[in-house]
């Protein structure tokens, strides 16, 4: 057992070597005609803080409390958002959300509704996008793509032929993208936020 750390270290070196020699295909967002693939999509935005620490976190908490009404009514106005939450973990501001439709449409509707609140939060982030986002929406969308975790394909046969093995393609991908979304369960797949609100008798849009 004394050799375990050595073996683990050797594996890491080998995987890094593989990844450098044969860079993995990093999957982009999945698109398909199926409705279940087009609603309840996820965004995992991981934004390193410029100066992580108690003061920064406290300032962000204060900002979100002060602007909570704007934020929630803005997300209501977008209308395609199921859940959205902000977290600070390990020096990263994170926005985790579940939304319907194309991510680029979502981000653009989001900028139009609550871009000003988001701009204030982005002021705490390292290497922020060009601000205000409302005057640079396309560059903000690009920035989101680079800060949104990659999503492992639901259908692993794209990467793995034999699930009893850990193939090189999966190892080099997890080396290149150490953080990723591994999967997601849906209790009611295929339904949009507006459908659920409508079924529950809640206001679902512009009436």
């Amino acid at each position: 057992m004394i050799f375990d750390p050595v073996i683990r270290g050797a594996k890491r070196v080998l995987i890094a070597f593989w990844a450098r020699r044969e860079p993995p295909h990093v999957p982009g967002r999945h698109y398909s005609p199926a409705v279940a693939d087009n609603v309840q999509r996820t965004m995992n935005l991981i934004m390193p803080l410029a100066h992580p620490g108690p003061e920064t976190t406290a300032q962000i908490v204060k900002l979100l409390r002060q602007r909570a009404d704007d934020l929630y009514s803005g997300l209501d106005n977008v209308g395609t958002v199921h859940f959205a939450r902000f977290l600070v973990i390990d020096g990263n501001l994170q926005m985790i959300s579940v939304f319907d439709g194309d991510i680029e449409t979502y981000i653009r509707d989001f900028i139009a509704s609550i871009g000003h609140v988001f701009d204030a939060a982005l002021a705490f982030v390292k290497d922020p996008p060009p601000l205000p986002t409302a005057e640079n929406p396309a560059r903000f969308v690009d920035w989101v793509h680079t800060h949104d975790l990659i999503q492992m394909p639901d259908d692993l046969t794209e990467l793995v032929d034999d699930l009893s093995l850990l193939p090189r393609s999966l190892l080099t991908l997890t080396h290149t993208e150490p953080d990723s979304q591994l999967g997601m369960y849906r209790a009611y797949a295929g339904y949009s936020a507006a459908q659920i609100r409508q079924a529950l008798g809640l206001d679902w849009g512009e009436q």
């Binding site: 005609p33 409705v35 087009n38 609603v39 395609t80 319907d100 439709g101 194309d102 680029e104 449409t105 653009r108 929406p137 396309a138 969308v141 295929g190 339904y191 949009s192 507006a194 459908q195 609100r197 409508q198 679902w204 849009g205």
Partner: peptide, 28 residues
């Protein structure tokens, strides 16, 4: 003036998913 915000948003979310009205979600 924006292919994403106008043309593509129209094609993806409205023409092909009907996301603008809960009664037609998932129909093209």
């Amino acid at each position: 003036a924006s292919l994403t915000a106008q043309f593509e948003g129209l094609q993806h979310d409205w023409i092909n998913q009907g996301l603008h009205h809960p009664n037609i979600v998932g129909t093209n």
